[in-house]
Amino acid sequence: MPAGTPAPPFELKCTPDQTVSLSDFRGRPVVLAFYPADWSPVCSDQMSLYNELLPEFEKHNAVLFGISVDGIWCHGAFARDRKLHFPLLADFEPKGRVSHLYGAYLDKDGESGRALFVIDKKGVIRWSYISPTGVNPGAEGVLAALESLEADGGRK
């Protein structure tokens, strides 16, 4: 999914009775972090790291969503256990549909890959990165992308 591509729209559940729609966040940068599975060790580190960086994302007025094929109840338990303060979206039914749209689905594993997207306030993908599944991609790429969005915004 190259930079400059409009981000495919989606609507996914984040709790049993709430959904999140990408279009609701037009006007703010959006960070999407696709990951294979709740509870797996590498993902937990990755999500915990992003959790600590929420003040930095807020400085950029950006919202962060984690996305995996786990269901909402699993997400809820995982988020509670790890004290995550950002929404986890369930790409659960039809399974992996949104991950497919973003080219971030691993057919052989039946899971989302470890893929990061930074979407600008107009809904255009400005940066993306696919990490090997076993490797925590960290956050330096996301932060740099958010900083460059801001720099571009200032120039226009």
Binding site: Q46, E52, E56, N136, P137, G138, L143
Partner: peptide, 12 residues
Amino acid sequence: DFLSGVKSGVNG
């Protein structure tokens, strides 16, 4: 310290 780590690729 924390942010310098994040920017240097500390991921855990």
